[in-house]
Design a binder for these strands. Structure first.
Lengths: 351, 351
DNA sequence: TTGTAAGCGTTATCAG
DNA sequence: CTGATAACGCTTACAA
């Protein structure tokens, strides 16, 4: 295919090993030869062969990305491009390549990961999801293969590098935010119940409700597997409740958007009749009408820090296990309003 | 790191080369030894080392993905996850890995590609964009490196494998669709003017307008670099025109969504006052209110076929250059209506 | 500071 | 049908 280290060596009148050293910027090499070799490289258009390098050095300088299985349409969630952008950024600057692994089913995905790992294609992995009892996670832990998780591990928190938001606090905070606005009947619409993020946020929500001495209604809690369709059905059911909620916490912008639509269809106005608040702060929250109040979880940072953490681990294997918490920020737009009893049929107290 | 071909050979009492043959499913090998070797592999948990394999066979079995530079927020466009899903599907089934290349600037991106190519990291590339005078494209053409483009090449159409929609016809068709609905003042809001897709669609639009003997107003044609913000400004300008359009063709769903919002804000109702039709048929078109009429360009297929085309090229280098056209389909939702003069101040004729 | 030579884990070319 | 053996392009002791 191309020009090899030997060609360069010949051209520069040095040994191949010297060229290798120049490429690696080895300190004990004279400036003179460095110059000479670099010129030769330039002239011949030399580029190191990564396969050979990997083979010899037993490191591929590439990071593997593991997506959740793409059976549902979760993939269309802008979350992924954005984390990837963050990971790319740091990877690029540290000269790591990025390899993706996807699969339609969990088994396919697992297979892909095993091949990547055992085949030596990647030095480490970043898991772009966190769910309970995950085969991939178990496999990696068992093999003691370097990886970092975006999200909170369900078990072994202290043994798994991860970068996450404080989802518990975030959910608690926005619930309190709604309570402060006078809402007492607040519903929670979460994603798949086996995603850790759902669990955490639900916990924060519950805590806030309880702490405010409000009653926790089971009917107000919905967790749906499918990102969109589920949310929409859930919304209708919630609205059909005899004592329907006046505010909705939705754990994903896309889902919230879907809910917004059905609400409109059945004549429920946001934010007048129902307040809506969601997570992720994707581009669409700005575009939506009304623009959605949403929790900015800093997806880009999530990715960037995950990448950084992994690379550090790879380059200094004795680096301690880390837990990195990315701050969140509530971005207020126009989907939340104060509770006004007057607009509701089933009036309670409250002015 | 792990168990190698030699370990397996020893365990099965054969030569390493025999193991290699078994892995490759070489025909001239007895069933007996195949069995024996396979058992040994199973027992030892053998997985071939890809780096070594690549080095020896001079093929990496991986496909590189080249994204557009991520300076604007184009990356948040659901187009990308979806093409990637398509590419993944075929890649997975043919046992190819996927390597991503991104960069913030064009230069960074170009660098990444060169490293991938010259470093032997990938056997071929898929470009997920098509723009005029692209450095990456030129480089690949010059080196005669296998690649396929998603979209239509600006030049050398016959020499570049590509998969595309017939964007000219698509645009023409939807323009005619609007004309049939009675619209005579139809505006075109496209993306960056140096993306080939913008050029093609604009051409189709123009053709339809001219063929219907309507006048082509320059003020009705807008091309904006930035995906969202641009579109929104454009919409306001269009609406401020003395003779404002009654229908808008927007070349991207996200953009259309943004436009939809500003239209609402300035009191212009879609579809009553203005009809809106867009491209891509992303999930958000269903969620939007009103749901958007959009052209389904079958993004998944675009990716799948691009992957297939590349792999075929890689495995049979004498495969002729291909041009694959994926059919589109207009998906009617609720953002288009018949033109009704009554709702407009500046009444023309037309019933 | 630089050169020599032995791998890294495969595949491929010959023999047999 | 199977076994030696030489690459593949690079890194890295070990020498010099």
């Amino acid at each position: 295919m191309g020009v090899t280290i030997k060609d360069v060596a010949r051209a520069a009148n040095v040994a191949p090993s010297t060229v290798s050293r120049v490429v690696a910027n080895h300190p004990r090499i004279s400036e003179k030869t460095k110059q000479r070799v670099r010129e030769a490289m330039e002239q011949l258009g030399y580029h190191p062969n990564y396969q050979a390098r990997s083979l010899a050095s037993k490191s591929s300088q590439t990071i593997g990305l593991v997506m959740p299985d793409s059976t549902d349409r979760i993939f269309q969630n802008p979350f992924f491009p954005e984390v990837i952008r963050g990971i790319s950024k740091i990877a690029h600057s540290r000269e790591y390549a990025i390899c993706m692994s996807t699969g339609e089913t969990e088994a396919e995905l697992y297979d892909g990961v095993v091949r990547m790992v055992q085949g030596g294609r990647v030095d480490g992995l970043i898991l772009l999801y966190s769910k309970i009892n995950d085969r991939v996670t178990n496999y990696l832990k068992e093999r003691d293969f370097p990886f970092v998780m975006v999200g909170k591990p369900h078990t072994d928190m202290d043994a798994i590098n991860h970068v996450d938001n404080d989802n518990y606090s975030a959910a608690k905070e926005i619930t309190e935010y709604l309570i402060k606005k006078g809402h007492e009947r607040i519903a929670f619409v979460g994603g798949s119940p086996d995603m850790v993020v759902t669990i955490d946020r639900l916990e924060g929500y519950k805590q806030a409700i309880t702490q405010a001495s409000l009653t926790l209604h089971d009917e107000y809690i919905v967790r749906e597997k499918v990102l969109r369709e589920g949310g929409e059905e859930a919304a209708i059911e919630l609205m059909n409740l005899p004592n329907r909620p006046t505010a909705l916490i939705v754990t994903d912008d896309m889902m919230a958007l879907g809910i917004l639509r059905v609400l409109n269809e059945i004549g429920v106005n946001v934010p007048k009749d129902v307040s809506l608040i969601s997570f992720n702060n994707a581009l669409i929250t700005e575009i939506s009408q009304p623009p959605l109040t949403s929790v900015d979880i800093q997806i880009f940072q999530l990715g960037y820090q995950a990448g950084k953490c992994l690379i550090e681990k790879l380059e200094q294997p004795d680096e301690p296990t880390k837990r990195i918490i990315i701050p969140f920020k509530l971005v207020e737009r126009n989907s939340c309003d104060n509770y006004r009893a007057s607009t509701q049929k089933d009036v309670k107290k409250k002015k």
